[in-house]
Design a protein around this nucleic acid. Sequence first.
DNA 1: CCGGTTCTTGCATGCGCATGCAAGCCTATC
DNA 2: GATAGGCTTGCATGCGCATGCAAGAACCGG
Lengths: 362, 362
Amino acid sequence: MSEVRPARAHRHATASDVARLAGVSQSAVSRAFTPGASIARETRARVEDAARALGYRPNAIARSLTTRRSRIIGVAAAYLQNHFYPDVLEALSKGLQARGYHLLLFTPDAARDADPLLQEVLAWQVDALILASTTLSSALAGQCRAAGIPVLLFNRTSRHADVSSVTGENLRGGRLIAEFLVAGGHQRLAFIAGIENSSTSRDREAGFTGWLAEHGHAPPLRDVGLYDFESASAAARRLLSRPDRPDAIFAANDHMATAVAEVARHEFGLRIPRDLSLVGFDDTGPARWPSFSLTSFAQPLRPMVDAAVAMVCEMIENPAAPTRHQVIPGELMVRGSARMPPEGCVSRADALVWRPVRDQAA
Amino acid sequence: MSEVRPARAHRHATASDVARLAGVSQSAVSRAFTPGASIARETRARVEDAARALGYRPNAIARSLTTRRSRIIGVAAAYLQNHFYPDVLEALSKGLQARGYHLLLFTPDAARDADPLLQEVLAWQVDALILASTTLSSALAGQCRAAGIPVLLFNRTSRHADVSSVTGENLRGGRLIAEFLVAGGHQRLAFIAGIENSSTSRDREAGFTGWLAEHGHAPPLRDVGLYDFESASAAARRLLSRPDRPDAIFAANDHMATAVAEVARHEFGLRIPRDLSLVGFDDTGPARWPSFSLTSFAQPLRPMVDAAVAMVCEMIENPAAPTRHQVIPGELMVRGSARMPPEGCVSRADALVWRPVRDQAA
DNA sequence: CCGGTTCTTGCATGCGCATGCAAGCCTATC
DNA sequence: GATAGGCTTGCATGCGCATGCAAGAACCGG
């Protein structure tokens, strides 16, 4: 009477199984599945037949162990409520999938420290790490460097360590928005920051306030929205309740800008842009819908992601390469949420963009 | 003269390195990092010191090779433009991270077949597969079953193979919306479908038209929005251009419903709900914002994700368990986008829900 | 027909870790 | 003080695959 074995231990066929069936060595099987390996056409065919018969598929884990390349890239993405990041994630995933990489996703808590999570990811011998919405502690950056793991910051930079990055034109965008709003005749500007220690928010603010200061304008009002819808709504409420209510708000991203629009319209009965001009940053998602029609400095998704994919692949090829900070140029997309300056609007493709008059020649 | 080695091959410390430094065997190191293993307190401390000194971290790939458990779960998610899915992804990720699993993300092209991608994921010996917005070909379902890999469909069911699933109350939701709209006195109903062969859209439509038919009402108009913003906009344009323009539209999800709202308001100058009632499905994202204030049948994210996490873990523990189809109850969240019936609204927590009058007693 | 190439192939080994097994040690018990 | 039992530990092995090496096969030109 034969013992009953649970069917669950249905072991996957291995290269040796295939080799036995095909009457070749295990090495031959390995070579049959390694592009560019030296193997006779006929042998490969025999192996492929046997593999098909057994439903064999090379075990990626075992392969990674010997090749020391996992073809896995760790990706951290938080703030998925902000439409920008799902779009980034999808584009990144597709771009890297096309190059044979897979993404190990992890979602750090905005509040908590991302380090422990990142540690786990490092245990996976990832070929690289992309941080799409988290800053890297300098400790971790050091570990990655020591371990030779390329790290790319997406839409962030780090002042702690010199880590490569891809960003939009945060500084220039901030400056341009200041100039745009002033040119539109606004008197009382306000800025709603994202998370204080994020380089993105800092740079956008620095550009904004920097331009204003350089041109003799009063510093803008300021509140903090933490990149979060509810917090940004609260910030908007505070700003709009002031006796010296601002006539223009620049929110550090579109996600917060839509929150401001909702509060301004539905809680304060303001009309946009008649009573309040609103400018965002990212040019993505609902902000483009007619209901919001948000004027926003674009971070062009495709070029940014393409650059990120290229950089990551390059860093994997050549880990010794120096760090690079790539800045992807964007433009101020003019829509209906902010009063338009008398001049400077240029139509471009199917959109309207704004440039300072002095640059029109270009 | 010693040969110069490129520093890049900075090999990670291995368990043997740690063992040597700590003066123990490699097994001891392994046990020190295996919870529950038999190891003396003092030995563990020595190992931990040595590990710290060398920056050692167990290699997850090697570990998976021997344990035959990768603690990786493959997740397919497409349609990330639909706010529901990023939210799902984030919640799933957090829930599974908390249980020690990591997500290998892949984003099938909506258009193309997901099979080749899924094949790659299988090569990773994933412990399970969650399909959040893709249907599984029956071929692949068979392969997974043969390989003993649990599969869970999230917000989908499959008619081909019996694969476990977690869904909302698509059928009941569709019925309830029909009843709600009829109770609200609407005369010409319309339905905008998602992707035709998605169970989600089919079930919602079946509930909707089923209730109407059972109660002697004319079948609704119908168009297809493919779960896509642009396509849904086009569908809305076609429906709203008809001489017998519908006075109520049920869009198969909120993402499409917002598209309808945009078109109705900004292209047709209609007011919602005075000229047109609009109902969606999901109760998520921008649909909740005041600008849309969408009446929508809720798919409660948290319970759905919790159920999915629990089911996946259970399936991993016990692969022989029978397939289950878990349906998470939801409610019709009443907001401002649809004319309200004279009775049936019940306030519940901080929201308004609708139930047929006959159920009020419950 | 032979030496030399170019291709293929199998052998052996190792990637880094987990684990069954048996040996060693320590404590408790009588 | 002897024995049984429980804890720890190291040894040896294997997970599934890739790859350097050398042997063998096929082929070429002279």
